[in-house]
Design a binder for these strands. Structure first.
Lengths: 267, 267
DNA sequence: GTCCGTCGAG
DNA sequence: CTCGACGGAC
């Protein structure tokens, strides 16, 4: 690859906790950072009410899928997306179409997901979460190739390592910090995906992407979780220059409980 | 009175429709206009949650009374208020303490009220509204003197004249544009109160202080009502230099359905 | 339309 | 703590 054909590719992921409430934060961040691809989760809005115009005005394409009240995913992009798909496939009412949106940008497939949180270990939603990772692995096997560039990102509702939560002893067993979830997540990664944040920050502590609203002053006290992630196939991971947490949205007038995670590539 | 002892006195009234939602509008208006007395209605917040600190920071004293959800009145002032009282008196649970707050500023009593709206003519709240004006007249008789300076202001939920609504034919009979309400309101005025806006703008049309949220583009189409008022005893009315409607809050990012009404005196 | 309270969710 | 949904009020 010559210098002439090399290009920068910037991708970011953000659990917006309502796109309507967070629209100002999103637009000002896009304006300042101009990512090529911006993945959002928990948009919490039905498609008919999605604020698509605001993205158009900002110079972004946007694709989205949401039912009212819960879940909802969207991707904004400078380039027009190709091959946009929704959900894991299978039965329409079981496909979780408001939890997964995939599209191809500059030839790179981007899969943006909002993985079920699981509520608590006794709740059927927890079994559903474990099953979801398994179904997602099967979706990767059936639909995509681990030999080619591919990005998986979003709110994956798993803190993969001991250093990814502020109190691993107390939190062990939580639905986002749990041996069964780690196994299910590892099974997905074994398809061929690498955690880009850890690739660039091995062993680095107190790096979190989520701070529970219910914990007073959680940001200042560093009481967070690293549950939002950007992973890629090895073919693309080799070209990843950086992966960083942007705390800015947490400092805004109307912060969400999540940060923005950003990865940059030279491709 | 010599020029040396003369002073300007500016008083304003604003139905805020939730003081928490409208705090930014209120503070920026106070900063720009620096009224001596600023009366608010429909604060919609219990006393324990009233944002008093924000007024202190802005250089204002503030007194208030509200129950949660409905009603609620407050007065912000540059000078410290004297003799602050709440409600019409009588039985505590019937005194409407969250609809009337009175205090004395530079020797001038200011009575700030949120008069019951009345819902509809068949609703018991309508009889209660009519009774409220009668009780308010009795309150004036018992407690105050019409020979001395005194201000009555607030959301009085009455458009007194034909020109005070955009469609007098269609709206005739509405709980805020109604012969029984006019009579009750006139009985109060007969105690000794003058409508300061009309004093300075006799016969002027299309002057409104309220624009129903449910009427599309009501401001642009001038589909309003003049139901917020500042009245005073003759002793003070003689010193009133102006009384004007400030539409600015209706143009803010988060407009309320009411404007601000401002009166200026030289005393 | 825009408030509030209440509720379920995270 | 903050979100959306809902129902009541204006």
């Amino acid at each position: 690859m010559t210098a002439k054909t090399m290009a920068r590719f910037k991708i970011a992921t953000y659990n917006v906790n309502s796109i309507r409430s967070r629209l100002h934060i999103i637009l000002s961040w896009l304006e300042e950072n101009r990512p090529d691809v911006f993945c959002m989760q928990e948009t919490k809005v039905a498609d008919a009410r999605f604020p698509a115009d605001a993205f158009t005005v900002a110079g972004y394409h946007v694709v989205f899928r949401g039912m009212k009240q819960y879940n909802g995913v969207a991707i904004a992009s400078l380039e027009k997306p190709e091959n946009v798909t929704y959900g894991l496939g299978g039965e329409a009412d079981d496909a979780d179409e408001d939890r997964l949106i995939a599209a191809v940008y500059s030839g790179v497939p981007v899969i943006n997901t909002y993985v079920p949180q699981g509520r608590n270990r006794e709740n059927p939603q927890f079994a559903y979460k474990l099953q979801w990772y398994a179904r997602f692995r099967e979706y990767l096997v059936q639909k995509w190739s681990s030999d080619a560039p591919l990005v998986w990102c979003g709110d994956l509702n798993v803190a993969p390592e001991q250093i990814d939560v502020h109190d691993p002893k107390r939190l062990l067993g939580h639905v986002c910090f749990n041996p069964e979830v780690w196994d299910a997540f590892d099974r997905v990664k074994s398809w061929g995906l690498e955690d880009l944040f850890r690739k660039h920050h091995p062993g680095e502590v107190e790096c979190y992407t989520f701070f529970d609203y219910r914990v007073p002053r959680s940001v200042e006290r560093k009481l967070g979780w690293r549950i939002d992630h950007i992973l890629s196939t090895p073919a693309l991971a080799a070209h990843c220059d950086s992966c960083n947490i942007d705390m800015n949205p947490r400092m805004a007038e109307k912060p969400s409980d999540h940060t923005i995670l950003v990865a940059e590539f030279t491709i």
